[in-house]
Amino acid sequence: MITIKNITKKFNDFIAVNNLSLEVKEGEILCLLGANGAGKSTTINMLLNFIEPSFGSAKINGLDVVKNPIKTKNFLTYIPENLMLYPTLTAIENLDYFCKLSGKNFDKTELKLYLTDAGLQEEAHNNRVKTFSKGMRQKVGIALAIAKESKVLLLDEPTSGLDPKSSNEFMDLLTRMKDDGVAILMATHDLFRAKEVSTHIGIMRSGKLENYSDSSKVSLKELETIYLDIMNFKNVS
């Protein structure tokens, strides 16, 4: 579903992503770990074609994102770190608006169903979004992914700033989506949750993928050691 091949991004002299290759298949969750500035967000931005790669290619569902900037977005849903919606519109209206932008038309009961599916309590459906917490807004985002039947989910540090309960709920949602065959790429700082929810884990540093492992094959302790090793190495160099 997500294929990144030898991708490099330079901002003037600074190399944000360096010859990165990775793949996320259907029903997989790849968690990208790494310090700030490791290139996680840049990678996601390139998949969204917000930034054009200097070299290499990124593909979604087999389509090159640079050549098909609009088509590829039919397959994906993106949830930024701080997902913002129109504050004066209600949850249903926001969902309706973005669904229609994607060319999907649903009636009100269907929209409510998706919101409930995404875990947004029914009382909030008709409330204006300006009163919503970050977790609630993210649920609208997930509802959008469900409604769009997205095959790819791109998440940029979705759990930062969420309370543990909301984080937990969110991870449950991701697992459900994974089970439905969605390919998920998530950038995060949260080792613990990454280990819990992902199928694969990648650790990035200075734009390079330093470690790539199957989550089921490493313990949390081992993961932490690998992560710290990589980070310390940076400090030494």
Binding site: L48, N74, L83, M84, Y86, P87, F98, G103, G141
Partner: peptide
Amino acid sequence: ELGTLRLLGAQPIS
């Protein structure tokens, strides 16, 4: 400035 532009950018629209 609100932040909705990122979400819009991820939709299949120009």
